[in-house]
Design a protein around this nucleic acid. Structure first.
Lengths: 344, 344
DNA sequence: ATTAGCACTCTCCTGTTGAGAGTGCTAATT
DNA sequence: AATTAGCACTCTCAACAGGAGAGTGCTAAT
């Protein structure tokens, strides 16, 4: 009911449509892909494939177009992930130009998404490491004007975060040192999420409320940890505008709305980093469940710190996407970032 | 040759066109603006205005449309800058929601541009303070893993900047303290630009080369100052897409290209902050000289630190822009940011 | 100086038509 | 039994023509 020949036809149709967004007809297939079959036979096969839900017709007497289910089958069973020439060039550029940026993860991610979108012609996206699971190493407090404290937080993973915190009391540098060393002894080795919940729990305890030093320390620490966790990077909008899929204003509005709603994309990418699979993952069109992302696919992977995935990176593009090329690229990028983070 | 009546007609045409992007005809003017003249007379006046270069016709037998020169005259002499209801709402939202963000200038600017674009329906843009003219107050160096130093730079203006610097030598925290105190004594009170040039000059001097402490100090300091200076914030792309001016794909591509070329916009805004005028400034369409910004106008102003302008904020939109409203908004915003920076 | 009247121009919408591409079905062929 | 040739049918798209609508410029009258 679904033999080798059917697969070949489906594959040909998907590939042809990816190359060029015109519905593909039976005659075109016979000519271009040199099947030893007539167009009439292809028509029969296509009709079967349509009934099985892999293809659909935009209208009677147009050719066929893959459905999301069709793409899914293509990605899972048909497309080869072999590296192409393009990808080698991509790999070279990435490693050559970006390897030196290792101190500022945000710059690294932003530059990487830029290259990713340049080479793929889709939207490059990345989520910066979730600091929640990072491990507290130490904190330094520096006096800055009256009522302002500069905090510098170090994690075991090498993350450094600073923030200016308002305090409603005037403190000397000596006070700050005492507060810092309290925090350091108290929280060393915990991960930041645990510290956050620990603080909430302890806030109400009496011993905290009585001791001004401790209560001040806790308050400062809470401020530091309240910072937004995941930064998102998106780039390549003008790349996407060049695609024929976006020759229509409505389509453009759609994707730009999706882009501005960074919240949703963050959630989406978060899912990737939670499901700690090792491979590149693909979400196609309506599999996505998110309204406003109907016509788009996402190819993403996580990058890791040690063996723990801490963030994700990927590509958003139309469902009519060059999956094999894109998957290979995302694979390269995620591994590259992992490598850089771990300091080689 | 250009009397009161001509002005009134020009004003009516510009306003009508701003409301609604249809070429405006003579009959429409007489009906809508209740001139005590017939459409024929209006036609004569319009013909004169066209000859003077304030109006043009998209094609014979369409109505008239303002030229850049027409907008310029409107902005300089005709439009009233009175506050409208909208602006008060805008002012309230800005002050209520953003006054508390004063420690992180970048967050402040990014949030402000968001509101600005929301209310204006154009692109909100802002340039973060040029740190070059800020005054060195002190620097703190903290050890971070081997070969990495976290630097925290304080300026008199309250700016705090941190950066992780690679060093090719291993140092104890005590060494770092000595280096920091050398830098502090050496550079206290200078502005960052001067320090940068000073470093370049001194790098070659012998005494520097001999003394390892000093040479290391200088090297670290150079790294710190090499950071990118002006950050740019742009927001509101999806706002802009809703405007009838961008119902055409080509137009959308144009503005998105202009947006991606952040370099150019930075240059442009830089000009604003240099020409230290106190008012909101307007650049209309081709006055801009920048290719790729032909159909766009820029309304911008500087925000200040003391009396010195340090950055700029504004709006980019189609030449067919509601100038009086936008100018009022940019005025509010620039004054608001100035106020917040100076800590009220 | 102003205006009514009119011929003219240009856009935009609508309907028509014909070419082209592709399908599904049936009957013939292998 | 699978494949294919042939054909009628459907749908899109581009080109074209006509007509309504809006606006102008000019001239002659007020």
């Amino acid at each position: 009911m679904f033999d080798e020949r059917d697969r070949e036809v489906l594959c040909a149709i998907v590939q042809s449509y990816i190359n060029n967004p015109d519905p593909v007809g039976s005659r075109f297939i016979t000519r271009k892909y040199a099947f030893s079959l007539s167009s009439a036979s292809i028509r029969n096969i296509m009709s079967d494939l349509e009934e099985m839900g892999f293809l659909r017709q935009p209208h009677t007497s147009a050719g066929r177009v893959p459905t999301d289910k069709g793409y899914r089958f293509y990605v899972d069973y048909l497309c080869s992930h072999e590296q192409q020439y393009d990808n080698r060039a991509f790999f070279n550029e990435i490693t050559r130009e970006l390897e030196s940026i290792k101190n500022d993860i945000d710059v690294l991610l932003s530059e990487t998404t830029k290259r990713l979108s340049n080479f793929s012609h889709y939207l490059g996206v990345a989520l910066s490491p979730k600091s929640g699971s990072a491990t507290f190493n130490r904190i330094t407090l520096l006096k800055h004007r009256r009522n302002h404290v500069v905090t510098v937080l170090f994690t075991d993973e090498g993350l450094v975060r600073n923030k200016v915190v308002d305090v409603d009391f005037d403190l000397t540098q000596r006070d700050l040192n005492r507060i810092a060393s309290y925090l350091n002894s108290e929280f060393y080795g915990y991960n930041l999420n645990d510290i956050r919940t620990k603080i909430v729990r302890e806030m109400s305890e009496e011993k905290i409320l009585c001791d001004t030093l401790i209560s001040r320390a806790i308050r400062i620490c809470r401020e530091v940890l309240s910072s937004p966790s995941g930064n998102i990077f998106i780039s390549g909008f003008s790349e996407v505008l060049g695609l024929p899929d976006f020759s229509d204003v409505e389509k453009i509005k759609e994707i730009s709305r999706a882009m501005e709603d960074k919240h949703l994309i963050i959630k989406l990418l978060d899912k990737f980093s939670e499901s700690a699979k090792d491979e590149v993952q693909v979400i196609i069109g309506s599999e996505n469940s998110l309204a406003g992302m109907k016509g788009f696919s996402i190819v993403a992977a996580t990058y890791k710190e040690g063996s723990r995935p801490v963030g994700s990176v990927g590509v958003i593009g139309p469902t009519r996407m060059d999956y094999s090329k894109t998957i290979a690229m995302v694979d390269i990028v995620s591994k590259f970032i992992t490598k850089v983070i771990e300091g080689k």
